[in-house]
Amino acid sequence: MIRALTTLALLALLAGCATTTPTYALRLEESTLEVREAQTRTLVAPSEIAILTATIAVLQDMEFNVERIEKPLGVITASKITDADSASEKTGLFFLDLVCALGGSDCGAMDSAQDDQQITMTIVVLPSLARSGEFRTRITMQRVVYDKMDRIKVLERIGDPAIYQAIFDNLQKSLFLEASEQ
């Protein structure tokens, strides 16, 4: 019995120290082409400066802070921290806490409610190699959601094509506005 327990404890210790390397972490997924299409548009603009200015303006419209720009590569990275509070989630967790309290215990379910989220976005704007006056624009986004105790609750890439479409719509409008102001 003792031997079995010792073995178990040793195994648990080893597992605790084990390194977890994800397999196929850098293999292209089958959906790559589809995702790339949702994240990319070819836009017409009078100049590279014009489209970069319009892109930065859109980021500000969407309340992002620009973190870095590397113009020769057309890379713009921006981020924002917003509220991730969800009323429906909180109602559910409130009732879970209530049930626990009725049973005489404290589950602290409310602590795990979503609180803030940090969204990071990279926009790459590059002149088309095929046609002048056209710019290939690609966006990738991901987010971290924290709970009330500042623990990470969700780590994910944002994949919803509708969100990307909304940003490109805003970018088109921004290009129009910038052009009409000149």
Partner: peptide
């Protein structure tokens, strides 16, 4: 990197260096 779902943390064309992050069930 974008195909693989990364966002770019920083890039320097002169020095040829790009650092990127991907959030998944793990952070790479």
């Amino acid at each position: 990197l974008q195909d693989l779902g990364f966002t770019i943390d920083q890039a320097d064309a002169d020095l040829g260096t790009i650092t990127a992050t991907r959030l998944d069930t793990y952070t790479m």
